[in-house]
Structures are given as C-alpha cells and as structure tokens.
Write a protein that binds this DNA or RNA. Sequence first.
DNA 1: TCTGGGGTCCTAGGACCC
DNA 2: TCTGGGGTCCTAGGACCC
Length: 450
Amino acid sequence: MRREPSILHLDLDAFFAAVEQRDKPSLRGRPVVVGGTGGRGVVSTASYEARAFGARSAMSTIEARRLCPAGTAFLGTRFAAYKRTSEVVMALLRELSPLVEPVSIDEAYVDLAAGDHDLSVPGVTALAADLKARIAVATGGVTGSVGIGTSKAVAKIGSELDKPDGLTVVPPGQELAVLHPLPVRALGGVGPATAERLAQIGVKTIGDLHRLSLVDLTSLVGQAHGAGLYRLARADDDRPVITDREAKSVSAEETFARDLTDPARLAAEIQALATRVGSRLQRSGTSGRTVTLKVRRYDFSTLTRSQTLAHAVDDPRQIAEIAHRLLGAVDRSGGLRLLGVGVSGLSPYAQGDLFAEVAEPAEVVEPADAVEPGEPVELPADPAPGPAVVVWYPGQDVVHPELGSGWVWGSGLNRVTVRFEGPRTTPGPVRTLVADDPDLQPADPPDWTP
DNA sequence: TCTGGGGTCCTAGGACCC
DNA sequence: TCTGGGGTCCTAGGACCC
C-alpha cells in the first residue's frame, strides 16, 4: 500500500456492446447482447439496457433471449473492431505513464507515480475526469469507469463502485472503511467456491474476513490463497504494475454444434486446432515442450491429458500428432462436446536453437555406449503393464509396433518412457525407430525402469 | 435447446535424484 | 541394510478472471 493514491484502474463499460452501439447508431438506447449466437452460445457482454432485463455475461444466449424483449439485438463478436478501439484507449493511458498494465482487452492498471502528476486527491480526481473525457472523444462515445487508490486492489474495487461511467478515488487512510462493508466477492480471487466456503462459517463481508486469523484462513482455502486474502482484507497489497508479461501458454478450443463421435471428424478438428495454435506460436516466435489435449464429453465432464517432450514444438503437424495420440487414451463413447489443444512451457527460442540449449549440459555419451538407430534392445520378460523401456532419440517419439498399444508416456531430457496399456505378449528384442533428421543422434544408452 | 474461449495460478501426488 | 528428507519435474484437476 502506498502513501499516495497513485494506482489507477480503468474498466471500459459493457465494452463489446458499447462498440456495437457506437458503430450502429440504431442500436443506441436499445438492449444489445454480444456473444455466441448458436445453440450453444453464451453472452460475452450485455449492454446496460439488456442488463435491466437480467441478461448477464457467461449466461447462455438462449437464456438471454428468453429474458430480453423483442427488439433486442443479438450480435456475434467483431473482435478486430474491439481490438482497434482498445488500442486507442491504451495509447491514451500510456500518455499518462510509461507503466501501463493491460489486464484484458477492456481493462488496465496505470502507475501514476511513474508519470509527472499531482498525486493529491483533488489532483488525481481531475486527472481521471480529464482521462474519461478524452476516452469518450477518441473512441466515439465508449465510456469507462475509473478507480484510483493506494494499491491495485483498492483501485480495482474503486472502479467497480460507481459503474458505468464512474469515477472513484479512495483517499489514503480510507481503504478499510471502503473495503469492509463490501461482500467478499468484491475481492479479486474470491469466486463462487471460496465465497461459499466463507459463507459457511458466517463470513460475508470483507470486514468479516478481517476478523479471521491467518491460520483459520489458510486451513479453509489453502496456503497461497489464504495468505493473499488475509492481506487483501487489510488493504495490504504491494503488487506492482507490470507493463508486459510473457505468455505462458497458447491454446485453442472449440465447442461443436453437435457432439462428435466420428474418428475422422475428431482427427480433422484436432488438426485445425493444432494449426491455430502452431501458427500463433510461430507468429510470436515461441515454442513449447508440453502439449495438452482438453476434452469435454457429452455430459459436460471435462478432462485434460498432456505430454511433455524433450524438445519444444511449434509445428502444427507435430502438435496435432501428439494431441491425437492423447485423444486415443480417453473414453469417447457418448460423443465429445468440445476439443481443445494447447502448448505450454514456452520459451522464446526457435526449435533448433532450443534444442541446442538443452543439449549442451547433457551428459557426454561415449559413442560405444550410444544406441545405434535400429539396434535391437532387450526387453525384460515382464508381463505387467507400466513403464517398460527407455530409448531416446532427440525429437523422436518411440513406439514399438511389436508391442501393440505401447506409446510414449513420459519423457525427460535424456529419456523417454514407453508405457503399455495392457499385458505385453511379445517380450524379446525390440527395434528402436530411426530418426529421419540427420542432425539427431542417440543421446543415452538404453536403461531399464523397473 | 443450460453451460464460450482465452488465459493464470495453485495444489497434490508420484517419480526421480541427491 | 534400513530409514529419511528435500528439491525438481511432470500430470491432472480445480478455482478464478475477463
């Protein structure tokens, strides 16, 4: 917490709907709902006129149609238009300070202490009023709500207090007086699950939360979360404004209009998702070692399966191949509602460069000990499923046709574990696969995992 | 014909290494 | 030979945010 109210939070009001109303004057003053318009669509943003009828973000569009009157506009998203408008606003924020942290397309923090400003309460109030006016002019009528305070948490709550088109400055020393009457849900990080747990012990407001001991709080909601809430209830928040954070994962997913069962269709969808992910990775010059498949079944049960590779990938074909193999291990009966493909464990290096990075510190392998491509490897006469054999060629997934359903289960820098899903029926010599890439070399002698 | 899509962070257990 | 603990990596799931 700072001594001066130098953190500003801006939240654009009903942003997607506001952009639509700006671009189509006939929609102004009317209820507008933006989001998925298909049978399984949900609402991204409802204009304030639509909220009056109960339409809300994340609600199914079908539900919103039931609630809203005839004459309500239901629109698909035009992301490019929102992005352009967002960039206009972010540029105005950067005129205030070099320290601007965009949280999402319609939200940002600004560290006013990094700019040249009068940080008194009247000073920042005038600054915010001027900012709001300039946003409205530059965007053609989109409004925003501003909160200013001594920390991110207080600024964010301030921007919520007076929506839409609001302006709230929380003076230093007034933080607890503002926070404590509010419901715990007002704090970032308190969602339905945490709120329910707190409600069960009679904690409804942030003031109630303030009376809990650190021990009680951490035993209720976990170590990190509990410690965080304990501090937030005291307005003890020193999180800095961060200008640009590196992405940690890239993913794409799709909910189908109808549940899918056809294997060829599923394979094609995985390929399409992998292509979206791979091309985004390539555009941003990153690649990642962990590929994750997400599956939502007909009954909405959702699961993920992932595999971490020895090398980072950005090639859609490789990503699709791994995701497709992961799909082979999940129960598809009844049909799939959604598929998703993601890559995480990102690093800024191109694939070749990255491999050089990780290969460098690897153990030196005597040529005599290295496995020759194609060389038979003795398997233990072990009939049980489980980790069985490790043979590694960089970049090469190892699957032994002799063993039927075996597939690459895990991998480290210098080995790959092949796991078998059923009893092995053909113990004996197994041929390792040969890597196509002439740059790849065997890096580790065969090694048994008992 | 309830329940999107893109993310982040945390937890817990097991494997593995020292 | 038995016992033990800490640290890291990986996987899976869950809560949360916009």
